[in-house]
């Protein structure tokens, strides 16, 4: 029993590690170590590159649709282009804030290199706008069962939050919630629609 409790203590640190076979697509599956958490607590912060343990791929230039295609084939690239052309952030008409959403593979809460780039930008924005806070909503596509999707959505929002906290955003500024599959951004059944719904959505306050 005691052994299990000790095992549980390191559990929050492993949240980002995710749990899907799709992890093969991603570069962030093993980025978090206890050591990398320690220096991240300072509340205001300049734009920082992703921490050293993150895979080198993540430090490539800001996401351009053509460059990023390898990272996440199901990311909705067309709507992403819209978002970029309008404000430099965001991915579709539902995204109105200055901070961009990040997208996930099916049944995964693992941050792709592209998601990590977006979160680095988001963290930089919060570094410049120290009075702002955000609610990070975890969302899922309609595949999967709805109870499980609430849990998965929470893991997505927590993944995004933990990453930004490691980049220096103070934890209390980022609230997380999961909507599972209850609030789809696109009610369509196409792969592109599904991909749009698998996200951590930022609502800036």
């Amino acid at each position: 029993m005691k052994k299990k409790i000790n095992g549980f203590l390191i559990l929050p640190l492993l949240v980002i590690a995710g749990c899907s076979s799709d992890a093969a697509l991603s570069t962030s599956g093993s980025t978090v170590t206890p050591a990398s958490l320690a220096p991240a607590a300072s509340p205001s912060v300049k734009p920082v590159p992703p921490p050293p343990p993150a895979a080198p791929v993540a430090v490539t230039p800001p996401a351009l649709p053509s460059v990023s295609s390898a990272a996440s084939p199901t990311t909705p690239s067309s709507s992403e282009q819209n978002g970029l052309s309008q404000s430099g952030y965001g991915f579709d008409q539902w995204q109105t804030g200055p901070v961009g959403d990040v997208f996930f593979e099916f049944d995964s809460s693992v941050l792709s290199s592209k998601a990590q780039e977006q979160l680095a930008k988001n963290a930089a924005w919060f570094g410049r706008n120290t009075s702002k806070s955000a609610r990070i909503e975890g969302h899922c596509d309609s595949r999967g069962t709805s109870e499980y999707n609430i849990a998965l959505g929470e893991r997505r929002s927590t993944s995004a939050k933990e990453y930004m906290v490691r980049l220096g955003v103070a934890s209390p500024r980022l609230e997380t919630v999961s909507f599972g599959e209850e609030r789809p951004f696109d009610s369509g059944k196409s792969n592109e629609a599904m991909a749009k719904n698998r996200r951590a959505h930022f609502v800036v306050k």
Binding site: G7, F8, L14, C19, E147, Y148, A151, L152
Partner: peptide, 9 residues
């Protein structure tokens, strides 16, 4: 439960 990952339903 005490496990790393989702425990549910």
């Amino acid at each position: 439960t005490r496990s790393n990952g989702i425990d549910l339903s």
